[in-house]
Simulated assay, not measured.
Amino acid sequence: MISITKLLMDTPNFGDSLRYQPHAHKAANGVGAGRGPVVVWNCTKTCNLKCVHCYARSEAIKYQNELTHEEGIKLIDQLADFHVPVILFSGGEPLLRPDFFELANYAASKGIRPTISTNGTCITPDVAQKLKAMGVGYVGISLDGCEETHDKFRGKQGAYQMALRGIRNCVATGQKVGLRFTITKYNYQDLNAIFDLLEAENIDRVCFYHLVYSGRGSAMVDNDLNHEESRKVMDLIIDRTLDFKKRGVNKEILTVDNHADAVYLYQRMKREDPERAEKILDLIKMNGGNRSGMAFGNIDSIGNVHPDQFTQYITLGNVRERNFGDIWTDLSNPIMAGLKNRKPLLKGRCPKCAYLNLCNGNFRTRAEAVTGDFWAEDPACYLTDEEIGL
């Protein structure tokens, strides 16, 4: 996750304390000393929508063997013992889990910052108020374009209006809320409209996700942006963020799942604002690039632990059988051991790239989806040979 606003403006937000730490303060697993990873918990696989790019392949059915309430409480205890700073409740649709509020409230009581990734359709004024009252740090609501585009992505007519209603209910109660936008060929033309929506609806934040070929998203490889389109998208995001800065509009803008973005931003600022570029370089050195299996992990609805939510085909253990901390620090799995020290394993352009320390090989799931090799170069890296020093 790359904070464009932090890199361009130095504006402070909670997540920056996790993403931009001097290496001297980081432990060997890529997180702050004495701190566990940020954890995405898919607390249920059940969803009321059927999105075309869903990595969890969720549907509107009841799935068997999901962690019970008691097991969820034990899991949160495990995460607290391992000093996990943030738990992101995801799904499916997490608000369809009957005990969601009890679990989120318990996480907060144990010193873990609860956040939620939701489609927004279940956020009534009462739900928004409950989220605010229990101290949910952030509500991320998926919105993949303008109304027609979003409804097609979500497989339900009216999904856009329901999500927008949920956003407005959060804004009305003072709950921090943001958009989650997955970029594809079918919706990148809506990016300007999304920036306009942020301002018009007083939305705090937007995360622009690069497509990862996982779950139902595995069938969308040909729908991803080509390299030239990715560069145009990044220029638009930079331009609109700089426009917000110029006009004093306070929004948090992030891109996710492609660390080529950080290098591209740095190289553009070297041409336009060399002094700022040096500050950007310092910050992205602290970030260290992709940290799946290091500072970021996933637990699915039945308790399996994965390096991140897109690699649910790789299981490291189950929290019903072993504590999360023991699973996370066990290097007997070659993938987990490799992720914590991946540079010697990377192939293609990566080993020769001048910015490998800033990117850390980018996203492994995309590499494997296209090449069949987990350690191959990420095909979504849109930087040219010349730009990476080859």
Rank of each mutant, 00 (worst) to 15 (best):
G32K: 09
E59N: 12
F195K: 10
R216I: 10
A260M: 01
T371A: 15
P379Q: 02
A260H: 13
V305G: 06
K279P: 01
E272V: 07
I302F: 12
S58N: 00
A108T: 14
L390H: 07
E229S: 14
N65K: 05
K132S: 10
D224G: 08
Y20K: 01
G120M: 09
N105K: 10
I4C: 04
S17H: 11
R268S: 06
A337L: 06
N318E: 13
L131Y: 06
F208Y: 05
I76F: 03
G217H: 02
E278S: 00
K270M: 06
V40W: 05
M134H: 11
H53L: 05
P307S: 11
L164K: 06
I183Q: 03
E102Y: 02
E321R: 09
R97K: 06
L345A: 07
A369I: 05
K347Y: 13
D204I: 08
N360L: 00
K340N: 14
K285V: 11
P379Y: 10
I203N: 09
F363V: 14
N42D: 06
T44F: 00
S301I: 04
F195Q: 03
K110N: 03
T115K: 13
C170D: 11
L96T: 14
H83R: 01
Y313M: 15
S109Y: 06
H23W: 07
C146A: 05
G111H: 03
D261C: 12
S332E: 15
G178T: 07
Q309W: 02
M336D: 06
I61C: 07
I335M: 13
L316S: 05
K232W: 11
K50W: 04
R271H: 11
K347G: 02
L383D: 00
V233W: 09
A163Y: 09
A107I: 00
A369L: 00
G338N: 09
Y213G: 05
G289C: 08
D257M: 13
C43W: 03
I141Y: 02
D239R: 12
K62N: 14
L95M: 12
L18E: 03
M1W: 08
F208G: 10
D239K: 15
C207D: 04
M1E: 13
V319C: 01
R322V: 11
R247S: 15
D273N: 14
R247W: 02
I76P: 02
P125T: 08
D373Q: 08
G120Y: 08
L143G: 14
A172M: 04
C207T: 10
A163W: 06
L8W: 08
L143P: 07
L103G: 03
L95F: 06
D373T: 04
K340F: 08
I61W: 10
S109H: 12
G145W: 14
P351W: 10
T241S: 15
H23P: 05
A56K: 01
K246V: 09
